[in-house]
Simulated scan of single mutants.
Amino acid sequence: MQFKILLPSAILALSAIPTASSAQGVSLASGFTDFSTWSLYGSATAINATPGNGFTYSNLELTLPGTGGSAGAGFAPDATTLDFNQAFSFDFHFFIPANTGIRGDGLTFTLSDAPGVGGGGSDLGYAGLSNSLAFAVDTFNFGGEPESPSIQILQNGDVNPLAYTETGLGDSIRDPNWQWRATFTYTPSGLQDETGDLTGTIYHTDLGTFSVTATSVDLSNLGTAVAAGHQLYYGFTAANGLADDGHFVTSATPVPVPAAIWLFGTSVAGLFGFNRRRLA
């Protein structure tokens, strides 16, 4: 697999965007996620690399660039517990490499009671995952469907959206600098009825911000009920059908400076500070 690098400039630019914050949920954008530990399905693969530019990268490759007819999924190995009468949020980085072929089909962030991969093509690797929620970035459309690229809220393995926003981005959704960041948030009704609003947002430092919201979504039958709420697996799906786009979710962290170098740097800084004081 060819490993793609999220440019350090992209990481720094995206760090200016506020991190999704909630007492519940997971930030995959602010901390390092090792996707090689995740459960992989279909065409999905995961690889880690430290290319010598000061960062370690972990890439979840859901579909392979240049190879059509594939569908893949990756899910965290452990379920998370969510109380649907409280807010939750997830965030992550994703990219679709530049391509000159047909754009399609898209990827999703999914919360499901059971991990797996659904149908390919326009099903986004999501269709058929019952008892689930998804925030989709849909990059292909047939007639009568939302004009792509669109962002959508999906439920219960159905790719007919509860809500959608047409972004008008065209092929620029394939970002050559790989600078997309996304958030998926839930705001409860406040009525203790496990119902609320779901919002998906994508951010780009050059191309702008796009959001979609589905209101009054009933989550009461989602996931495995436990005393603290509902247990769900979180992860990603994608498919490319007749297109051959690749779909990536990525994470990066700075490489730690070895202790010996750190101590040497501290000593040198102290020496320079002493000299400056003598010259003052």
Rank of each mutant, 00 (worst) to 15 (best):
F84G: 00
G116M: 03
P77H: 06
D197H: 09
L242C: 12
T237K: 05
I5K: 07
T215P: 04
A13F: 05
E61T: 14
D175Q: 09
G241F: 06
L242G: 15
A239C: 11
G106M: 00
R181I: 15
N275Q: 14
P256H: 06
E61H: 07
A13V: 13
G168E: 03
T185Q: 12
S43R: 04
L7E: 10
Y203H: 02
A239P: 03
F95T: 01
D78E: 13
A29Y: 06
V26S: 05
L219W: 08
S220H: 06
S220A: 15
F92S: 06
Y233V: 10
M1K: 13
T50C: 12
G235W: 06
L207V: 06
F88A: 03
A114E: 08
S122Y: 09
N99H: 07
Y126D: 01
A23Y: 07
T185I: 13
P8Q: 08
D197N: 13
G208N: 06
T215D: 05
T33F: 11
L107E: 00
D175F: 10
T67N: 11
S130Y: 07
P188K: 09
F109I: 11
T253A: 15
T250H: 05
T67C: 07
A79D: 00
P161T: 05
V26F: 10
L28A: 12
N59Y: 03
H204F: 03
T205H: 01
V217E: 01
W178L: 15
F274C: 15
A269Y: 07
Q231I: 14
V268Q: 09
S211M: 09
D78P: 02
A227V: 15
A214T: 12
Y234G: 08
I47Y: 09
G72D: 00
Q231L: 14
L169H: 02
D245V: 10
S132L: 08
L7A: 12
G190H: 08
N131M: 04
G116S: 01
T110Q: 01
T56N: 06
G69A: 03
I11H: 08
T199W: 02
S43W: 10
T100E: 09
A46W: 00
G119M: 01
V212I: 05
I47P: 09
A98F: 06
G31I: 12
P161C: 11
L12S: 13
F272H: 08
I261M: 12
L124I: 11
A260C: 11
H230A: 13
I151D: 04
L271A: 13
N85L: 09
A29G: 01
G168M: 08
N141W: 08
G74R: 00
L12A: 15
Q192A: 14
G144L: 10
L232A: 12
Q24N: 05
L82P: 03
T250C: 10
G72W: 02
T209R: 01
F94D: 01
V26T: 10
D218H: 04
F140S: 00
T81S: 10
S216C: 11
S211C: 08
G74S: 05
Y41N: 13
G265H: 04
G116N: 02
T199D: 01
T266A: 13
A49G: 08
L12K: 11
V137E: 03
G196K: 02
Q155D: 07
N275C: 15
L6A: 12
A227S: 14
